[in-house]
């Protein structure tokens, strides 16, 4: 079936872990937009959710770091973090090994993707799922793009990966929803945590909504690091979704810096039927 949903959202651990420290009104509007994303995914009739994440050393380390990896298991456990710190209880999310295998097989036709039958979720996936599938009743296909351990996955390869994901999603009979999580600009887990370059974020989201491939690939890591922090490297997940959306126009449903969450909180999606 053709891809039924494509969107992006933030995943910072403070969104759940420090929920009570944010302005209740601003946080409420953000959560409302995440609820809207959940409703849209449910309305799409999705039978599986592919989550393109930028994991934080939950599964992969510099002893064997893939540029791309996909999970291929019937279930996934998380979070690896202390549940009291993240304020997400330990959970087991369903997977679909057979579906993953078919998706991986198709992606491999153009992109060398690693696969793993063992995969633990950290906040990069656990936080989005907390809002998008709170009952853990939708099979998940986890995906990782290396945004953490340099040398990082090149942006144009993240784009090619997104195109391959779309081709794979369209080729299987199941209805597939796709969500990318990450960034945008932020300096997470440093003493500068909370810093956000709002102007940079808004310019990026403008490019994302126009689904302007040339503009979205017109970044380099040195500039991103200087202007958007090491957290900005996670734009790779957003780019993969843009490529998968194949030119569809996007809409920002929510954007606001929430400093205690350490990121400009974002919810956006593409209109795949435009």
């Amino acid at each position: 079936m053709p891809l039924v949903y494509a969107g992006v959202c933030s995943h910072a651990p403070g969104i759940t872990g420090r929920a009570d420290q944010a302005d209740p009104e601003v946080r409420g509007a953000f959560v409302e937009s995440l609820d809207g994303m959940r409703a849209a995914i449910e309305a799409s009739g999705a039978e599986a959710l592919v989550v393109v994440a930028a994991e934080h050393f939950a599964n992969f380390f510099m002893d064997n770091m893939p540029a791309f990896a996909m999970g291929m298991a019937d279930h996934y456990d998380g979070p690896i973090e202390d549940p009291d710190w993240l304020r997400i209880p330990k959970f087991r999310a369903p997977g679909n090994r057979d579906l993953s295998q078919r998706l991986v097989t198709e992606v491999m036709q153009t992109v060398d993707v690693a696969y793993s039958e063992e995969w633990l979720f950290d906040h990069g996936i656990a936080v989005p799922l907390h809002f998008l599938t709170p009952g853990y009743d939708l099979p998940i296909v986890p995906v990782n793009v290396n945004c953490q351990g340099p040398p990082l996955t090149p942006l144009h390869r993240a784009w090619a990966f997104g195109e391959a994901l779309r081709r794979a999603a369209d080729a299987v009979p199941e209805r597939i929803a796709l969500v990318g999580t990450g960034g945008i600009s932020h300096w997470p887990a440093t003493p500068d945590s909370g810093k956000v370059n709002e102007a940079w974020d808004r310019d990026f989201l403008d490019r994302w909504c126009r689904n302007d491939r040339q503009a979205l690939l017109d970044y380099d890591d040195l500039t991103v690091y200087a202007e958007a922090g090491q957290g900005g490297f996670e734009i790779r997940t957003f780019l993969a979704v843009s490529a998968a959306a194949a030119g569809a126009p996007g809409t920002v449903r929510f954007y606001a810096p929430i400093p205690i969450f350490a990121v400009g909180c974002t919810v956006a999606d593409y209109d795949l039927h435009a």
Partner: peptide, 18 residues
């Protein structure tokens, strides 16, 4: 890289305390 901190930033944005 330099940052005034979460409280100053939230105040600048007009956020109320959590």
């Amino acid at each position: 890289t330099g940052y005034d901190g979460v409280e100053a930033h939230a105040t600048e944005l007009g956020h109320r305390p959590g």
